[in-house]
Every structure is written in structure tokens, then in C-alpha cells.
């Protein structure tokens, strides 16, 4: 296990059920870290920026794209912030560690890359005026303090991309005012999204550049609490239906019973938080991915909205073989509703 993977397993993902920190319960201050509070009201543009007193935070952007060649693509751009200790300090003393993942997925190819950096001296960070998030030469940058119009880039040995994103809808706060509960025992995070991006730009792949257009979805989430002790991983769906409606649903797997929740987003962009258990998802088929059995075809339902759809991954081999590895890739939706989206699955180690 390298320093990098140690870092990530310890701090970045909540799935690290075996770590001592996971015993920290609701309301307790985890080793001095701040805890998400139901009373908190999100405040923009300040909350677009980092929250160094929380243990973990991310800026998570996915997009379903169509190339000028007619082929479907997906891209991922994620910046994780992980604090070894709460707060910020200058220079090498900064306890903030940054990790970025980027990926491009097509039907038969999946490229990914990773960058690590520490805070404190400018190699990585997030600023709010104007909004700018970066590690090395990977960047998500707005023209102003809002997230309305951003440019996105990532570069690696075999691939790179440069995209422009324009939002045509409002921000969506999940849960109650952006306070999203993650388990029956009360673990929670602050969570909001911008699911309404129109995307255009260029992917540079080994076979040459591809002009693309499509739709993007940005997730912002921070917390200090890991998953509940018995939770082993999660399956997370962000679905964009052709009707203009959108569904974010997640399933936290546990030996004692799965916990599901999510948000229904109307065509106008109005968010309706879902009751725990309202959203249901079950695996229909698994694929052998890097020696693991991973469900790549799902059935999802939200009866109260008449949703009963089948979800099929574009490329079942969308494995992020990064320091902390997981499955993340574009999906297509058919059934009661049709559309596209992204699927993330963790904890299938």
C-alpha cells in the first residue's frame, strides 16, 4: 500500500469501514473536524470554495457527450480535498491534501489519470473570486463567482480535454437545505449540485481530437463523517431523462439492510428530496471488471414518480484504477423514461 492509497483510503472515501475514525458518531466532533449541521444554510459564492475544517470535500463533474463522429462519450473531472487535520496552514505545514481524477470513456475505451498535491503553496486549491479549482495543469474555472459558465481541462500522457460548460438551470440543494442524510443512524453531508450544464468542447484521444457536445452535472459535497460502520460501499446514480426531469439516487449497501435516498428534480429545476427507501435499485447483470464482479446493468424504480427504468453502462470496463479504485462511467436509460446519466459504484474491492 503506497502513501497515496493510504491517504485516500483513510480520508477521501467514506467507504473505509474498517478505519478507527468510523466509530465517530453523529454530533461528535471527529478529532476536531467540523460536523455537518442540519441548521446550516448554504451561502454562495463562499460555499463553492473549500471548507478546510471538514475532513472531506469534493468538486465532482460528469458529462454525457456525443462526438461529431456520432459516438457516445463520458467524461469525469473530480477534485477531492482531504484534510489530515482540520484547518489550513501555510507552506509545507498545510494539512490539506488534494487529489484529482480525470477520465474519458467511450464504448470500448476508458482513459483515466490521477494527480496528488498538498495545499499551502499553490500547486492545488480552490478559490472563489472568481471560482477556480485546480491541481497542476488540470483546471475548473469560472468567468465569475458563480458556477454558471465554467471551463474545464485535464491533461495526461494519452488523453486530454478542454470543455466549456454553461448552466441553463438553478443550483439544486439535496436533502433539507443541502443537508443530506447518509444512514439510518444519522451520518450526513452538505450536498448540492448543478445538474443543468450544456457542454461543448474537444476531447484529445490517441486516435485524434473529437469535437463533442452534451450535458454535464456537477456535485459538491463535504463532510467529516465516514459511512456507518456496517456500510460497505455505495451505488450512486445521476440520471437525466429526455423529459427534462432528473433523478439523483443512491444506495448505501449494508449487511443490516441497504439505505437509499435521492432527489427528484423537475424539468424546471425544482428539487424534491426523496424519503429513505423511496428509490430502489437492483443489479440485473454483473461484468468481470479487473477480476471483480461489478453490476453494470441495473433496474431502478421510483414508484411515486412512475419511474421504472433499466440502466445500461456504455462501457462495462469503466474502472478507475487510481490509488483508491472504483467504477465510474456513463450509462443510458430505457423503460418508463429514457435518457442518459452517470453511475458510480464503490466498495467492490
Amino acid at each position: 500500500m503506497s502513501v497515496k492509497s493510504a491517504l485516500v483510503t483513510m480520508a477521501v472515501f467514506w467507504a473505509g469501514a474498517a478505519l478507527p475514525q468510523s466509530y465517530a458518531g453523529l454530533g461528535s466532533s471527529a478529532e476536531g473536524f467540523a460536523i455537518p449541521q442540519q441548521s446550516t444554510r448554504l451561502n454562495f459564492p463562499a460555499d463553492h470554495g473549500p471548507h478546510p475544517d471538514f475532513r472531506i470535500e469534493w468538486w465532482y463533474l460528469t458529462a454525457n457527450l456525443e462526438g461529431s463522429d456520432g459516438a457516445s462519450y463520458g467524461i469525469q473531472w473530480t477534485l477531492f480535498r482531504s484534510a489530515l487535520a482540520p484547518g489550513e496552514a501555510g507552506g509545507w505545514q498545510s494539512p490539506q491534501v488534494w487529489m484529482a481524477h480525470a477520465a474519458v470513456t467511450s464504448q470500448d475505451q476508458h482513459f483515466f489519470a490521477e494527480r496528488l498535491a498538498r495545499g499551502g503553496f499553490g500547486q492545488a486549491g480552490v478559490e472563489t473570486a472568481p471560482f477556480d479549482a485546480w491541481v497542476d495543469d488540470w483546471q475548473m474555472r469560472s468567468v465569475d463567482e458563480t458556477l454558471e459558465q465554467i471551463s474545464l481541462s485535464a491533461n495526461d500522457l494519452t488523453f486530454s480535454y478542454a470543455l466549456n460548460l454553461t448552466a441553463d438551470g438553478p443550483l439544486v440543494l439535496h436533502g433539507r437545505h443541502g443537508y443530506s442524510v447518509k444512514s439510518a443512524s444519522g451520518q450526513a453531508s452538505h450536498y448540492y449540485s448543478q445538474p443543468h450544464y450544456q457542454v461543448s468542447g474537444t476531447l484529445s484521444l490517441p486516435d485524434g481530437p473529437v469535437e463533442v457536445t452534451g450535458h454535464g452535472w456537477l456535485d459538491r459535497e463535504w463532510s467529516s463523517q465516514p459511512l456507518a460502520e456496517d456500510q460497505s460501499g455505495w451505488d450512486w446514480f445521476s440520471l437525466r431523462f429526455d423529459s427534462g426531469e432528473k433523478l439523483m439516487g443512491f444506495l448505501l449497501r449494508s449487511k443490516t439492510g441497504d439505505f437509499t435516498s435521492g432527489t427528484w428534480i423537475t424539468a424546471e429545476g425544482k428539487a424534491e428530496p426523496l424519503r429513505p427507501g423511496a428509490f430502489q435499485a437492483e443489479a440485473l447483470a454483473v461484468s468481470d471488471v479487473q477480476g471483480r464482479n461489478i453490476p453494470t446493468r441495473w433496474h431502478a424504480s421510483l414508484p411515486e414518480k412512475g419511474v421504472s427504468v433499466e440502466i445500461q453502462s456504455l462501457n462495462p470496463q469503466s474502472w478507475m484504477g487510481t490509488s483508491f479504485s472504483y467504477w465510474e462511467g456513463p450509462v443510458s436509460v430505457s423503460g418508463s423514461h429514457s435518457g442518459k446519466g452517470y453511475l458510480e459504484m464503490t466498495g467492490y474491492e
Partner: peptide, 28 residues
């Protein structure tokens, strides 16, 4: 060295873990 970037970081982490110390302690 920056333990996040240095090419030999992995060896150092292994050595630290052999000393039953979490590798990341070295950063704090």
C-alpha cells in the same frame, strides 16, 4: 522530499508501516 510526489515514497511508506506507524503520520 514531498512524500506525495517522491518516486521512492512507496518504499518509505512500507518502512513506516513496518514500524506500525500510519504512513501519513510522516506528513503531520
Amino acid at each position: 522530499v514531498d512524500l506525495l510526489q517522491h518516486p521512492q515514497a512507496q518504499g518509505l511508506a512500507l518502512a513506516a508501516e513496518a514500524d506500525s506507524a500510519p504512513a501519513l503520520d510522516a506528513l503531520l
